[in-house]
Amino acid sequence: MLGQKARRAVILSLVLIFFELFFGRVLELGMIRPDLFLIYIVFWSFVIDRRSAPLVALLLGFVRDVFSSGFFGAETFSYFAAACLISMLSLKVERTNILIQGATSFIFALFQFWIYALIVLLCSPSPEFPRNFFWLSFLHSLYTAFLAVWMIGALERCIYFRSSRAHLLA
């Protein structure tokens, strides 16, 4: 049997996947769209369980691969690689500080974006990138980080039903 916390985490993951896949367009600003999966992985790594974050990233990456038209497998691998980085980072930083959460989300998003591009470049027979790729990746990461600052706290309340972060310090 799953514990109450794990059950909530699973439900939250399903809701997030559903929202990201089907209603993600609502959050679009021009061509820029935040990556809710990335935010969720940072949240998972910082708040729930650092060690299982790569597994969550693997699953979410696979879901994204299935529902996208890019090079199959690139999302899975890039999420996984970035999650490994986050998992290591979360040991060394102050996880309760929202600025650090935002900065980590920014680095995570940028890293995942570039790894994805690198994989596509190496594996795809005809890789195509937008002309302003670096600028777009920067804006995408920035938007994701801004949203993460607000979202991680909200997700935490959903899991623990309280605003206190005492559990992290315990």
Partner: peptide
């Protein structure tokens, strides 16, 4: 995990 992450790439190739 690494094998699982690389597997989709291998499959697509």
């Amino acid at each position: 995990f690494l094998v699982l992450a690389v597997l989709p790439l291998v499959i697509s190739k």
